[in-house]
Design a protein around this nucleic acid. Structure first.
Length: 422
RNA sequence: GUGGGCGUAGCUCAGUUGGUUAGAGCUCUGGAUUGUGAUUCCAGAGGUCGUGGGUUCGAGUCCCAUCGUCCACCCCA
């Protein structure tokens, strides 16, 4: 019986890894461009962290976490998202006390869901967070970082949806009114909505069940319960986006699935990925740090699904920087073996960025050139006994850049450097 | 968790109402060209038909289970 990978957990093969490397390289560059520092965190945390951060009655915690006891009886979970761990680490190391922090984080996260296109049980996120800044300018900054990332990756066609959830106080008043309203129409609600009525009524607003939707139409609107400061904050976020020329639509029904959000929430969506349209989503979470036992510190950030981003890059034919070989060295004849070996090594010494494959495993020149072609290399170098004797080497373009020519081996480094821009 | 589609060579697929030794294209290997790829021609290699049961004289084909995958719901990144 062949052993297969665990359901919903995928391998990335060498042919596909260039896109991943490209995304990571561009993302790291963008985050650094805004002064964000990278944080590297464990993949497992205490289960309690996610219950408190994400919310006890969210789907993520209720039925999607990989939770288990370790051998010491500790209740731990594979992380279902990154923000909780970032906050935990920030509190633990005292970097969130009375100061600003701009950080980012990446890695695998785990949710036990039914896999489908763009939805996997192990997937990867890029996560950006800013702490200790309660003004709307940093909400704008966070959204702008995503926009900058799209720009540098050469991607387009995103829809930005934004909304505000206000303060916990506004939400409490609205929540009471909403529960009251929904209870009056309880008989017409679907089972799921009825179950959520008391635990998480805001989620009912998002329901796609037609009967429930009809009732939701007349429900109390959160917008009507927001205080002046919340409205002003939201207005400032919109003004900042306007100033940057970042287009958006306000979606009053936009509610995040994680409980910790306050004020600004947003989603970058696409209609090019089927049912899994959200590529990047986030918002402000002013109470989370304190809720997890830290100082009263505000936060705002987003999570981005790397698999979805890469799927979308494929759909949009976004060019990816190749990590394949540039040069393939063919060698044959007893005298050429070690000459080619030392030549290849010295070229790598001279040009750290050069990607050069030295033929191994023998084969005739014909099959070596075939390997060279299949490797994607731009040039093949041919070194046989004739060239060894003459102190030369043949440089052969594999991509229609003129005829093959022979040059002195002492000239080779300069020749490659010029042609490949090393 | 619910509903549906699909699992045949490394890849994309064909395979008739169940009937001899399961095919094609691409890829790969070798040769035509004793030292020149990507074109052409020739040859070769490559399969427990996802897995396990069952029905049958006989199963890639029918039935059951199971695993995987895809689509939608749900949820979200």
């Amino acid at each position: 019986m062949k052993i297969q990978s665990v359901r919903g957990m995928n391998d990335v093969l060498p042919a596909d890894s260039a896109a991943w490397q490209h995304v990571h390289a561009v993302a790291a560059q963008v985050f650094a461009a805004y002064g964000y520092g990278e944080l590297r965190l464990p993949v497992v945390e205490r289960t309690e962290l996610f219950k408190r951060a994400v919310g006890e009655v969210t789907d993520v915690v209720e039925k999607e976490m990989y939770s288990f006891e370790d051998r010491g009886g500790e209740a731990i979970s594979l992380r279902p998202e990154l923000t909780a761990g970032v906050v935990r680490a920030g509190i633990e190391h005292g970097i969130l006390f009375n100061q600003q922090q701009r950080v980012w984080c990446t890695g695998p996260v785990f949710r036990y869901e039914r896999p489908q296109a763009g939805r996997y049980r192990q997937f990867h996120q890029l996560d950006v967070e800013a702490f200790g800044i309660n003004t709307p300018d940093v909400d704008v900054e966070i959204i702008a970082i995503a926009a900058q990332l799209w720009k540098r990756l050469g991607m387009s066609g995103f829809q930005l949806e934004i909304n505000t959830l206000g303060t916990p106080a506004c939400r409490a008043v609205h929540r009471a009114a909403l529960i009251d309203y929904l209870q009056q129409h309880e008989a017409a609600l679907d089972d799921d909505a009825r179950r959520r009525l008391h635990t998480n009524p805001l989620r009912v607003l998002d329901s796609k069940v037609p009967a429930t939707q009809a009732i939701v139409e007349g429900a109390p609107k959160l917008l009507d319960y927001l205080d002046e400061a919340s409205l002003a904050h939201f207005a400032a976020v919109k003004a900042g986006l306007d100033a940057l020329g970042i287009g958006y639509i306000v979606n009053p029904k936009l509610v995040r699935g994680l409980d910790y959000y306050t004020h600004t929430v947003f989603e970058w969506t696409t209609n090019q990925l089927g049912a899994q349209g959200t590529v990047c989503a986030g918002g402000r979470y002013d109470g989370l740090v304190q809720q997890l036992g830290g100082p009263q510190t505000t936060g705002v950030g987003f999570g981005l699904g790397i698999e979805r981003l890469i799927l979308l890059m494929g759909v949009q034919n976004v060019p990816v920087v190749s990590n394949g070989p540039q040069v393939y060295v063919c060698r044959f004849g007893d005298g050429a073996e070690h000459v080619a070996l030392t030549l290849a090594e010295s070229l790598r010494d001279s040009f750290p960025n050069l990607r050069l494959v030295l033929n191994a495993g023998g084969g005739g020149l014909k099959s070596q050139l075939k390997r060279a072609d299949n490797s994607g290399a731009r040039y093949a170098l041919v070194l046989g006994d004739d060239e060894v004797a003459a102190g030369t080497i043949q440089v052969k373009s594999l991509r229609g850049e003129g005829d093959a020519f022979t040059c002195a081996r002492t000239e080779l480094a300069a020749e490659l450097s010029r042609r490949l821009g090393l």
